[in-house]
């Protein structure tokens, strides 16, 4: 079976700066691979090469068997890129953004595709508002929804949760997990270990311009000495507290008849 992504000996430098120095990487069809690395490790450079936005100096990169250098159009037809910055049109509404992408992908029913995806990404209520009015989490969801238009078999997500609050981040994680469940292959870059742990089938660590280690979470764990058993009093993390409080608040916001506090508008 053809690998969704196959990278061999990929090199890229900007002037004197060798960013990628022989990267090997493979994403099996229908799997999620997390590319883990510090800021400036070259994650975005790799994703840009795979998305045909940047030319490599040496080595090869293939997406579903199509070489990014010699068959860029076939690569573009197979992929979708969700870049580091939310690439949405602020002037257009959410629906117009979606329809724009659907029409550029020459889908037969652009509006139907747009409405279906907006609903799946919980943006149906905001569909007719300009994207400029969206919150950070909504913008990212719209960004990802735009990348799902036309169901491309391979999706690149470049740091999809950077700058999101925990709740919005969890929503993005659910969307990504659902994607892989549908058979989409995902290459995800992140600098958050937890994100890789939660989502990825395999994890590749990019360091010093090469993939230093690659494997499942368990394989990577075995690189370290076996765990020792310690007794630790487990305090809830601030994140758990935050999410619990938010959950409680939104439950209390729901209309509750006569007990609603004064000033609350009932439907």
């Amino acid at each position: 079976m053809t690998a969704a992504v196959q990278v061999r000996g990929l090199e890229k430098s900007f002037g004197d700066l060798d960013v990628l120095r022989g990267v090997d990487l493979e994403v099996a069809p229908g799997s999620i691979v997390a590319l883990l690395g510090a800021n400036g490790a070259g994650k975005t450079t790799l994703v840009r090469i795979l998305s045909t936005l940047l030319a490599a100096d040496a080595g090869s990169a293939r997406v579903l068997g199509h070489d990014v250098a010699t068959a860029p159009r076939d690569v573009r037809a197979s992929i979708s890129l969700t870049g580091q910055f939310t690439a949405i049109d602020d002037v257009l509404t959410g629906r117009e953004n979606m329809v724009l992408v659907a029409r550029l992908r020459h889908l037969p029913h652009p509006t139907a595709v747009a409405d279906d995806l907006l609903a799946r990404c919980s943006l149906a209520d905001a569909a007719d508002r300009p994207a400029a009015k969206y919150s950070g989490g909504m913008r990212r969801r719209l960004d990802i929804a735009m990348s799902l238009v036309g169901e491309p078999p391979v999706i690149f997500l470049d740091e999809p949760t950077t700058g999101l609050d925990p709740q919005a981040r969890n929503e993005v994680w659910e969307t990504v997990a659902a994607l892989a469940a549908d058979g989409t292959s995902v290459l995800l870059t992140t600098q958050h270990l937890e994100e890789a742990e939660r989502l990825a089938d395999r994890i590749a660590i990019l360091h010093d311009g090469v993939v230093a280690h690659e494997g499942t979470l368990d394989e990577l764990r075995r690189l370290l000495p076996p765990a020792e058993v310690e007794v630790v009093e487990r305090q809830p993390s601030l994140e758990q507290v935050f999410l619990a409080v938010i959950g409680v608040m939104s439950a209390a916001d729901a209309p509750s008849g006569a007990s609603a506090p004064t000033g609350t508008e009932l439907p």
Partner: peptide, 13 residues
């Protein structure tokens, strides 16, 4: 700057 141009360039257009 906003990345929209890259989105278009990474699409089959």
């Amino acid at each position: 700057q906003g990345g929209l141009f890259d989105r278009f360039r990474s699409m089959p257009i």
